Simulated assay, not measured.
Amino acid sequence: MKRSRVLTLLIAFLAVLVAAASPAAASHPNKPKPTIVLVHGAWADGSSWTDITRRLQGDGYTVRVPPNPLRSLSSDSATIRNFISTLSGPIILVGHSYGGAVITNAATGNPNVKGLVYVDAFAPAAGEAIFPLAGADSALAVDPTTVFDFVPYPGAPAGDIDLYLKHDTFVTSFASGVPRREAELLYPSQRPLTLSAGNELSGTPAYDTIRSWYVLGTRDLIITPTAQLIMAQRAHSTITRVKAGHLSLITEPGAITKVIEQAARAN
């Protein structure tokens, strides 16, 4: 009898330890992992998320990386909005650079989006365009002819053009912190943003109703750290600082993945 009582007490004690070690699992035993949707920005493509995608998949997350057309803020947001409308279950929507402006608009009104994660990203308020939000000291806040190559595109509205980053701006400012050889490989495949997309006014921001996280690159030369902080604080985001340039998703994939998974576990 005495041995039976000791065994019962030991089992009860172990049960308490297990519950304490995994409170999230105990509270939400059947809670599905959210789908992580990664949205790239201008002068990049979905491959910029490769290392982060690999890490997230390794941790058991379903990851989707839809192409961002980079044609106009309204149509790009509609593209991502339509894409996520086909997904079931909870979603964490992540945007880098211009992709931040896209998710700010695309997530509005979608109850499945449980969190927004901004990575060195624009987080505009209603009525704001992205180019002025880059900051007074941004490498882009100069004579545009010195940083962009202007390229016409078929069907462009009057006065609109594609903007490609000039070589020096790309490798020294956009890709600052990326090993030079890798930056040189990224430069030829950059995807352009239209001039009109950079000047189109944003709509009602999703961060007004959806919890957000912000990864702030303290060495970013494209969207200055000061400008990022203003946007992150205004969005009431949980802020994580990384010592990285604008492409922290390439140079610091572990830190970015950690923040994305924090957002995923919080919902």
Rank of each mutant, 00 (worst) to 15 (best):
H167A: 05
P67E: 14
F150R: 10
A134V: 06
N105C: 02
Y153D: 08
G41H: 08
A244P: 04
S48D: 11
M1H: 11
A26T: 05
I256S: 06
T238W: 06
Q233E: 13
V37S: 07
A129N: 06
T194N: 02
A15Y: 06
A227F: 00
I230V: 15
Q233W: 07
T238I: 12
P66Y: 13
A78Y: 05
I260H: 02
T145F: 08
V113P: 12
S196Q: 11
L195D: 10
L133D: 11
T104H: 00
L7N: 11
R219W: 00
A21S: 13
F131N: 13
N68H: 05
A136V: 05
S48P: 04
E200N: 09
V39H: 03
A175P: 01
P157H: 01
A121F: 03
L10H: 07
R54M: 12
T240H: 12
L73K: 02
P154H: 01
L87Y: 09
D120S: 15
A232R: 08
V16T: 09
S72G: 09
P124A: 09
G89P: 14
E184A: 12
P192D: 06
V242T: 14
P90N: 12
I84W: 03
T240L: 02
R241S: 14
T169G: 08
V113K: 03
G217C: 08
L247A: 13
N112I: 02
P32R: 01
Y61F: 11
K258F: 02
P66Q: 10
A101E: 10
A263K: 03
A158G: 12
D120N: 15
P132Y: 03
R5G: 09
I11V: 11
T35Y: 06
A25C: 07
D137M: 00
S48V: 14
N110V: 01
L116P: 07
I80W: 03
T86V: 08
L247R: 11
R64C: 10
V113I: 10
F148C: 00
P69N: 02
I256M: 05
G203R: 01
K166F: 01
P67K: 12
G41A: 00
F170R: 11
V171Q: 06
G99K: 09
H246P: 08
P154S: 07
V259D: 00
T238Y: 10
T194S: 01
I91N: 09
Y61Q: 10
T204L: 05
A15W: 07
Q57P: 07
S4N: 13
L87T: 11
P179D: 03
Y61P: 03
T50W: 12
L201R: 14
H96L: 03
G198T: 00
Q190Y: 00
F170S: 01
L247K: 12
S88F: 02
S202A: 15
T145S: 15
R265L: 09
T35W: 02
Y61N: 13
L17F: 10
Q57M: 13
M1K: 13
P157D: 04
D45Y: 06
T79E: 03
V39F: 01
P132E: 01
A44Y: 08
T50N: 14
A24Y: 03
A24P: 00
T238G: 09
T8W: 12
G135R: 00
L9I: 08
T146W: 07
V6W: 14
D59G: 14
D45H: 00
A12C: 08
L221Y: 07
Q233H: 06
I52V: 12
P188K: 04
A134H: 05
G46N: 13
D149M: 10
S72M: 01
P253F: 06
K2S: 14
